[in-house]
Amino acid sequence: MTAVETGSTGEEIAGGDVLAVAREQVLERGEGLTQEQVLAVLQLPTERLGEALALAHEVRMRWCGPEVEVEGIVSLKTGGCPEDCHFCSQSGLFDSPVRAAWLDTDRLVEAAKQTAKTGATEFCIVAAVRGPDAKLMEQVRAGIAAIRAEVDINVACSLGMLTQAQVDELAAMGVHRYNHNLETARSHFPEVVTTHSWEERWETLRMVRAAGMEVCCGGIVGMGETLEQRAEFAVQLAELEPDEVPLNFLIPNPGTPFAHLEVPQGADALMTVAAFRLALPRTVLRFAGGRELTLGDLGAEQGMLGGVNAIIVGNYLTNLGRPAEQDLDMLETLKMPIKALNDTL
């Protein structure tokens, strides 16, 4: 839903024009926008998109620097998940063409090697589960040990909801960062997932932080949320103070309840990128899935010049990305250095 479609502009907020306020508050003082202010950015007319992106870029450069964090991800266990996240082709509750598959340790290590070759500093092991069982924890343990023996890269995990004991185990295995997305605003979550709650996800994130792992938490834009809910989500993420926020754009997957939704529009997605950067000035803001359909090549560059400072290179879990070289070439063209491993520790 673009501002043009809603017919509102929302440029003026208490204190004046929202981008002028953001320049003083976010760029100069490093304080993220409030919910009302984020909404005003999301409601800006498309003619002001360039201005919003330029300011978001300045904020990123000032508070994060020019480096780009590169990550690769791989699905250790694909499909057959008992949860009902309405966007997800890996739910076993939907008539999705995605079938269950497991990756063996050799191929996991190979995927980590391929990722490291791109200059990436993060490699995230992902499983389609509500939460890990003993078998999965064992595979993760073996996988991390095997990667550690051969590849110089930070290992992250995304294994669903955790118990305290599992959090402690993963921290002891040396997991650098844990991903668990809140996916959308708390008020919209029941329209997206019914088999578990937003609060259960929050609880996992709280334990992850307390155990000393970095917190990676983002969501998906374009799941029928209103602009108000998008602003609500940005501010809820800011309250969490995550180390990283991956921003996905909906890929309507066949067989899922969201198969009928439209791919988010590029201008709408880019305004969201700018608004999230202005809400989260110091966070690693990562382009994740869906940018290929929503933004194309040009939009990806605009996003990198509009507040994004991290990318997933190569393929995703069940979807394909553009070839890694294309993204690496883009970073070179934009003169954005890749963050080195010793800067992440």
Binding site: G72, I73, T78, R99, L103, R107, N315, P323
Partner: peptide, 10 residues
């Protein structure tokens, strides 16, 4: 329906 494994490069 095929069993498909996606990895970072293929």
């Amino acid at each position: 329906r095929m069993i498909v494994q996606v990895d970072p490069m293929g």
